[in-house]
Structures are given as structure tokens and as C-alpha cells.
Amino acid sequence: MAETSFLSTKPGRRLAYHRTDGQGPCIVFLGGLKSDMQGTKAVFLEEWAQKEGRAFLRFDYSGHGESSGDFTDGCIGDWAEDTVEAVGALTEGAIVPVGSSMGGWQALLLARAMPERIAGMVTIAAAPDFTEDGYAADFTDDQWAQLEARGYVELPSDYMEPYVITKRMIEDGRQQLVLRSALELPFPVRFLQGTADTAVSVETAVRLLEHASGPDMQLKLVKDADHRFSDGPCLDLVVQALREVLGVRQ
């Protein structure tokens, strides 16, 4: 495997990345909360892009993987800054973001930040606005008290150690919401969602589909697929979705 490269950003962060040169648009993988660029989907898509001769970028947000910083110091806005910096410095021309879970939210924020660069988008179990609709909406009085008293709460995860959710993440998340105002996606979009996903509901996927506007937008539900969306058939569906938004024949 190629050696990891690093990008120093304007806010002073050091982002780890792997970039593959090739024909465009460049596919940019955006990972989920507390995941990293070594995950199954990121590596699989990189290998696919290399076989196809396509440009590809995967990177770690600050506080994730090999990048600098601590996870508990970060927030949605910080990771959106990381994404814009990585795309701006490491890609040229048109891009196709592939956003997984929180990365789906990041893909939507990227579409707002640089719409002129985006040729298409694929999301996998996209989790827009989850800090507000998934966390804050369900906090108990005791959890709100913990958030105020010590600045964070710990929430269980089905996939790893508990998530540490900070007051800053909740407050910043309210500045990054995408489902409360117009969301224009004027390019081909494919939203992929498993029906057995316990982290992101089918209702969330439908809400995103109904809220966003664009000329070529589809939601594909996959029966019994979970949040990881990483087995062989699911990975094949991601490639199929990519081919569709790229306008490549099967």
C-alpha cells in the first residue's frame, strides 16, 4: 500500500490522505464519524478507481485516523473545513463525493460550499443533521445536565467504544444543518440506504430525498443491509451508483 501523505491546512491541522491520479471527475471518499480512510469502503473504492484509471482521494478528518488532533476537540464545522481544504488542495476540476454516514452530511455541506465543482454525488446511509435530530432530540434531562456540567456525554455505539459527544459538537451542528433550508443538488445523486440500519433510519433517507431538489435524484433501499454497507453486494451497488452518476455504461 502506498505511503500516507499529509496536508497542512490553513487552520493548522495536518490531514492524512491517499491520492490516486487518473481521469476525472475525481472521486472523493468522505468517511463517517470516528471512521478513517482505511475502512473497507474507502479502500475498495480506491482499488476500483485504480483499475478504472480514475482519480481518487481518501483522507482522514482532523481527530480521525492518522490526522492530527483529538476527536473530542472537533465538530461538524471543523470537518467541513477539512473537506473543503482537502478538495481545494488535492483535486482539480470536477469531483464526485461519496459520503458515508456523517460523510453524507459532509458531502451535502460540500455541495453548498463549492457547487460548481461537483459533477455527481453518492451517499451511503447519509446522516444529515444527526447532531440535532439524532442526539439533541433524544437527550434526557440528565444528559443535558451532564453536557452543561462537564461539556460532554457518552453515547453507546453498535460498532465501537462509546461516542463522546461534546457541547461544542451540538452547538456547532446547529450551524451546519442542511434539512432546514433549501438544498439544491443540481447534478446526478444516488442515496443508498439499508433497511436494517440501526444508526440511520429509512425515514431519514426518505426525508433527505423529499427535502433536496435536483434533476436526477434516486434513493435505493437495500433490504437487510446494515449501517456498514460493506459486504460484496453492497459494495457492488456503490460502484453501480458511481457509474450512474458518472454516466459510465455498465
Rank of each mutant, 00 (worst) to 15 (best):
F71K: 09
F71C: 04
T72Q: 15
T72K: 15
G74M: 11
G74C: 11
G74A: 06
G74D: 00
G74I: 00
C75Q: 12
I76S: 10
G77C: 11
G77Q: 11
G77Y: 03
D78N: 13
D78C: 07
D78H: 14
W79C: 00
A80Q: 12
E81I: 12
E81P: 02
D82I: 06
D82H: 09
D82K: 10
D82V: 04
D82Q: 12
T83Q: 04
T83R: 08
E85T: 10
E85C: 09
A86Q: 04
V87M: 03
G88T: 14
G88R: 10
A89Q: 14
T91M: 08
T91Y: 04
E92H: 14
E92C: 13
G93K: 07
G93N: 05
A94E: 15
I95G: 00
I95C: 01
I95E: 00
I95V: 14
V96F: 01
V96R: 00
V96P: 00
P97H: 02
P97F: 02
V98D: 02
V98C: 08
G99F: 01
G99C: 06
S100G: 05
S101C: 15
S101F: 14
S101N: 12
M102P: 04
M102R: 07
G103L: 04
G103E: 05
G104M: 10
G104V: 13
G104Y: 06
W105D: 01
W105V: 02
Q106M: 15
Q106E: 14
A107P: 05
A107K: 05
L108N: 01
L108M: 07
L108I: 01
L108C: 02
L109F: 13
